[in-house]
Simulated assay, not measured.
Amino acid sequence: MNHLWGIDLGGTKIECAVLNADNIKEVRVRRRIPTEADQGYEHILNQIEKLVNQVIEELGERPEKIGFATPGTLDPVTQTMRGCNTVVMNDQPMQKDLEARLGVSCLIANDANCFALAEALLGAAPEVHPNAQVVFGIIMGTGVGGGVVINGKVWGGRQGIGGEWGHIFLDESGGPCYCGNVGCVETVLSGPSLQRFYTQEAGEKRSMPDILARHQAGTDAAATATVERMLNQFGKALSIITNLLDPDVIVIGGGVSNIDLLYTEGVQRAQKHIFTPKPDVLVVKNVLGDSAGVFGAALL
């Protein structure tokens, strides 16, 4: 049987999924082991090799190629990893090293691209727009990322930064970003950034669900200020995607995607910034959850 192999390389776990190429909704094998990144880059490679061998034994056949979802980007010029929050991977020739270890062709894309690909082909996009040609995937969680899928393929761009919505300038109030710039989308709309703004306003820490509940109850001015700022800034950031790409579907994942107001008031706030008299922006919540990374890797 023809199979598609994918591995999601996370900070705490490495997951492998094998899909039936003739029916991509059929998962033949799915296994995970701990990353143990604190033991270094070579140990991560060892863990990947260990997991692949386990799946080979279970499936009874070797892969022809493997797709990898990574927490960073393979620089197309230097062929080394960059922007990984699993920092021991940075500056490493990971694709070359994996191919040498595993003896198969390896394809690498960042986790936001893999999320976008999975939701475009298997997830939310086909449910709302079966013939979608352009899908933009957004991850809003601990960090913020994005990915572009055009006609079923990831658009990584000339420099490997296609879809990097999280590092577009949005508002200086977000403050410094780990990337070296100030006011990136990530510094304004990530979960920790939203909670940090509330703390600055209220002088105390609260979780995002608690902030939302207090806003909806009308009992906490700082909570309302946090939510209003989130909706306004999300609207501006969403309009950037729409004015640039005008995608058929925008899919949101990550912990912040559970905020229902984003799909109603958030989209409404975007409309006044969109360059058309009657904006029609289709923004939906993901359906694959944490499966999107490994499925997207397989679909590479």
Rank of each mutant, 00 (worst) to 15 (best):
N53V: 06
G141W: 02
A292E: 00
T187Q: 08
N90S: 12
R269L: 09
I56L: 00
L45Q: 00
L19E: 00
T142R: 12
V249W: 09
I7L: 11
L98Q: 02
N243M: 08
F275N: 07
A118N: 07
E15A: 15
A37W: 03
L238Y: 07
W165N: 09
L170W: 12
E119G: 03
G156L: 15
T199Y: 10
G60Q: 04
N286W: 02
P192T: 10
V128L: 02
G67P: 05
A125K: 10
M1D: 04
L299G: 02
M94D: 04
V144G: 01
H43G: 11
E265K: 15
G218P: 09
L122F: 05
T35I: 08
L74N: 14
R229M: 06
G266Y: 06
K205H: 05
G255S: 13
F68L: 00
V283T: 04
V284D: 05
T86L: 05
V148C: 03
L98C: 06
L102K: 05
L300V: 12
G147P: 02
R206F: 02
T73I: 13
V55A: 00
L288Q: 00
P209W: 11
A125I: 08
W155F: 15
R30P: 03
I7H: 08
L244E: 04
A221T: 11
F136H: 02
D22R: 08
C16K: 00
I161D: 07
K50C: 03
V87I: 15
V287Y: 01
V29A: 13
L194V: 14
A202H: 10
K205T: 10
M208Q: 08
V134P: 01
H43K: 15
V18I: 07
Q271V: 01
F295K: 00
L300F: 14
L238I: 08
L212G: 04
E119F: 07
I66H: 08
I44Q: 11
N258I: 07
A132D: 13
G218F: 15
F115T: 05
V18N: 02
Q92G: 10
A120H: 07
D210A: 11
V29E: 15
Q54D: 15
V281C: 12
I240E: 03
N46K: 06
L245W: 04
L238G: 01
V134L: 06
Y41G: 07
N131T: 07
R269V: 00
N151L: 02
F169I: 06
L189A: 09
E58Q: 11
L189Q: 03
N243S: 12
R82A: 09
T80Q: 09
V154W: 04
S207C: 12
C106M: 10
G103W: 01
C184W: 03
Y178V: 01
D290W: 00
E49Y: 06
L19T: 07
S239M: 14
H215W: 03
A237G: 13
L245C: 02
A17T: 00
A270K: 03
D280M: 08
C177T: 11
I138T: 01
R28N: 10
V29K: 06
V88S: 04
A112C: 13
L299A: 05
L74C: 08
V267R: 03
